[in-house]
């Protein structure tokens, strides 16, 4: 239940960590602080899109991208672009991650990987 509010996530076993997407996000001009994230969820709590749409969870997206959880990254492709770049998450983030910028970076990197 923890990733997306109101959704039941089917059990699946993680067999590896893959930080290649993380490295790409870090290299993006707006994704440089992604490594600071400690998963407090303040961004998600403040996010107006997450409030309306349970599949959109910036905290969770950051984690899935960091650890390279493939299935999660795949699912993320459909909803990451829902971000309106309103910047409320960046205002509240205690670690200076700039989650709004990171959403943009993850979106860009996923798009690049697709093409």
């Amino acid at each position: 239940m923890s990733g997306r509010w109101g959704l039941i996530v089917l059990p699946r076993t993680i067999n590896d960590f893959d930080h290649s997407l993380l490295e790409m996000v870090k290299a993006h001009p707006k994704g440089g602080h992604v490594g600071n994230c400690w998963q407090c969820g303040n961004c998600t709590a403040a996010c107006p899109v997450a409030e309306k749409n349970p599949t959109f969870n910036p905290r969770y997206f950051i984690y899935a991208a960091k650890m390279g959880y493939e299935q999660e990254v795949k699912k993320m492709k459909e909803s990451i672009y829902l971000c309106t770049s309103c910047g409320r998450c960046t205002e509240v983030c205690p670690k200076g991650v700039d989650p709004s910028g990171v959403m943009e970076a993850i979106g860009t990197m996923i798009r690049k990987a697709r093409s």
Binding site: G3, I14, Y60
Partner: peptide, 12 residues
Amino acid sequence: EDTLVRGPFEVL
């Protein structure tokens, strides 16, 4: 279990 994604892990 990675409790942040609610997924079991088995990693080497």
